[in-house]
Design a protein around this nucleic acid. Structure first.
Length: 487
RNA sequence: GGGUUGGUAGCUCAAUGGUAGAGCAGCGCCCUUUUAAGGCGUUGGUUGCGGGUUCGAGUCCCGCCCAACCCA
């Protein structure tokens, strides 16, 4: 608690805190009603208006008897003009004990300075919270990634571009909900703690319920519960919430991530593809104002432009493989390995033939695809929960949407034949398999309507739409190794 | 898990193996329309942690911790 009181900067702030208390003022304030946020007052600026606002002091320009401070919150900032004569000597003495970082409330009248800055001339101010630690550099912000992620609040205060990404994320999620609700999809919540983690092939987090005396798993997908709702009569349903996968952490993976899943009874994967296409374009136009999404580097130069213009390409998996390896499907497995070696694709960890093909797909198609591409009719081994194609039963009626070199969204014609579903789950091959959820199969036996389903990785969608290079830049509090506790 | 790079003042960054520095913030003084305000002065460091080599280590070597990137 009283760590580092020897630090001069912290000690000075505590002295100021005490000085405020000695003047019989509570440095931690109370209820304070405003006529608007700093950003709102600035955005809807009218001169000569009595206003009341509150925010954090983020800049201080001291002119001797007059001071200019910036008051900020996520809405933006407004300049406040503080004149000793105007506020009186007692208040001026308190003002001397304020710092950048403190929260204050201000009463005053709006005016425009001679440099044209919309401002508030303060008549009084109220101390709302004393900040005991100095804020990061106002000009360079927080560069240290560790501080950005562990102490996101500092990143949000000091780095406007970070705040901008999170504002966009919030708007994207809101637009997606609106889009689906406008089309009569109903949002539901299904269990995050499951006794059989189904709906995907991934390592789950394990936990334990004391009263029931059973082990439970954090869900890796909501799919099997949403399908139970199709059985129960919901015909347009979605869930937009967190999944958990106990796997590696990388630029593109966080252990908990946000997924949209939506199911539409009597539809198929082609209709789901159109729905997703329409939805992503709707969101892009609303939030980015364009279907051309520019990704910039730290210098602000455009390094990549993603073109979301419709219609989006739809191409079968096998055609895409032939596009990069024309004779692939005529090759023997040994020839395929040889081909991979020639093209410097490491497939030593691939055992099954379809895994080999999938690896070629990931390296030569997925990673190189920037504009939207619906990859249709994937090998059935990759997708045990989808309907087989009626004319080619080695593939399934699905799409995988690839944008920005990443898988953004899968969509299926959902498998609703309970016997076939059992067989497909029991005869999975390859390294990753899904668990068998008997209660889900029982539900299917009661009858599930044919349906289309989609999943959309919200974090990756936000990365694509904001140009964020790392998933940590679109998750407010990304997973970090806990810091060793000090003692 | 493996490889690469990095960790220096509150923040952003410097410093051939040879006295640890700058800008901003802070503190003091001047200034009643500034906006990265300005001017003058000034404080602030167990260089991530622990060992080692050396007359001498922020710098070289070993181990550990944390992070970023790449690979699995």
């Amino acid at each position: 608690m009283e760590e580092m009181t020897h630090n001069e900067l912290l000690a000075i702030r505590r002295q100021k805190l005490n000085a405020i208390r000695e003047a019989n003022i509570d440095p931690y304030g109370a209820r304070f009603e405003t006529t608007g946020t700093p950003g709102l007052i600035r955005a809807e600026f009218v001169e000569g208006l009595k206003v009341r606002t509150a925010g954090r002091i983020t800049a201080h320009r001291n002119m001797g008897k007059s001071h200019f401070i910036d008051l900020s919150d996520i809405s933006g900032r407004i300049q406040v003009y503080i004149n000793s004569k105007e506020i009186g000597p007692d208040a001026a003495a308190i003002f001397d004990h304020l710092d950048i970082g403190d929260f204050i409330g201000v009463d005053g009248e709006t005016f425009t300075t001679k440099t044209g800055e919309p401002s508030i001339k303060a008549t009084t101010f109220t101390v709302l919270s004393k900040s005991l630690r100095p804020l990061p550099d106002k000009w360079h912000g927080v560069q240290d990634t560790e501080i950005k992620y562990r102490q996101r609040y500092l990143d949000l205060i000091a780095n406007p571009e970070s705040l901008e990404i999170f504002k966009k994320r919030i708007a994207i999620v809101r637009e997606i909900r609106r889009f689906l609700e406008d089309r009569a999809f109903i949002e539901v919540e299904t269990p995050m703690m499951q006794s059989i983690p189904g709906g995907a092939a991934a390592q789950p987090f394990e936990t334990h319920h004391n009263a029931l005396g059973v082990d439970l798993f954090l869900r890796i997908a909501p799919e099997l519960y949403l399908k139970r709702l199709l059985v129960g009569g919901f015909n347009k349903v979605f869930e937009l919430n967190r999944n958990f996968r106990n796997e590696g952490i990388s630029r593109r993976h966080n252990p908990e991530f946000t997924m949209l899943e939506a199911y539409w009874a009597y539809a198929d994967f082609e209709q789901m593809a159109s729905l997703v296409e329409e939805m992503v374009c709707h969101v892009a136009e609303k939030i980015c104002g364009s279907l051309l999404i520019e990704h910039r580097n730290t210098d602000g130069n455009v390094v990549k432009t993603i073109d979301l213009s419709r219609p989006w390409r739809r191409t079968s998996y096998s055609d895409l493989i032939r596009g990069v390896a024309p004779n692939w499907y005529e090759f023997t497995i040994d020839q395929r390995r040889e081909w991979c070696a020639e093209h410097k694709i490491d497939v030593t960890h691939c055992h099954e033939d379809f895994e080999l093909t999938q690896h070629v797909f990931e390296k030569l198609v997925e990673e190189k695809t920037m504009n939207p591409l619906f990859v249709t009719h994937c090998p059935k081994e990759l997708v045990p929960l989808a309907k087989l194609n009626s004319s080619n039963p080695s593939v399934v009626d699905v799409y995988e949407l690839v944008i920005n070199g990443q898988e953004i969204s899968p969509g299926y014609s959902e498998l609703n034949d309970p016997d076939l579903q059992r067989e497909r789950l029991e005869h999975q091959s390859g390294g990753e398999t899904q668990k068998l959820d008997e209660e889900f199969l029982t539900a299917l036996e009661y009858g599930m309507p044919p349906a289309g389903g989609i999943g959309i990785g919200i974090d990756r969608l936000v990365m694509m739409l904001t140009g964020a290079e790392s998933i940590r830049d679109v998750i407010l509090f990304p997973q970090m190794r806990p810091k060793a506790t000090q003692h």
